[in-house]
């Protein structure tokens, strides 16, 4: 009986040992995943293509477009508009040109801002 009890204890220990071994496998898998992530980060730092989500690419592409559009807008604001030569004539007995009635050397300028509607 003693030998049988010893054998049972031995079998029990073996079973416990095997159980511990099964639990160690997922831990090993998790370690592998961390290693893979670290490798990915290293690849990204080195400028190598990484399996990043595709949605990041359009975001990166938008930035240069904004940078391009800004310098395009600035020259438009700074553009010098060439206006056609004004025609000098007479309107209701007064010297006239585009927008202006009266003599150019008149001491007082009355500027009127208006809207036809």
């Amino acid at each position: 009986m003693r030998w049988f009890s010893v054998a049972l204890v031995a079998v029990g220990l073996v079973v416990i040992a095997c159980g511990t071994g099964d639990e160690a496998q997922p831990a090993g898998t998790a370690t592998s995943e961390r290693v893979e992530r670290q490798a990915t980060v290293t690849q990204q730092q080195q400028g190598q293509p990484a399996p990043a989500p595709e949605t990041e690419e359009p975001e990166q592409a938008e930035e240069p477009q904004q940078q391009i559009s800004t310098p395009e807008e600035e020259p438009q604001e700074q553009q010098v508009v060439e206006l056609p030569a004004d025609v000098v004539g007479e309107h209701k007995g007064v010297r006239s040109e585009r927008h202006v009635l009266g003599e150019p050397d008149a001491p007082v300028e009355i500027r009127y801002y208006g809207d036809f509607t």
């Binding site: 009635l101 009266g102 008149a106 001491p107 007082v108 300028e109 009355i110």
Partner: peptide, 22 residues
């Protein structure tokens, strides 16, 4: 009269505030 007499000259400038018709 101010314009005819040469005291003043009058300058009209557009200031669009009422939209597309203006």
């Amino acid at each position: 009269e101010l314009i005819h007499s040469g005291i003043a000259r009058y300058e009209y400038r557009h200031f669009i505030i009422f939209g597309s018709a203006s």
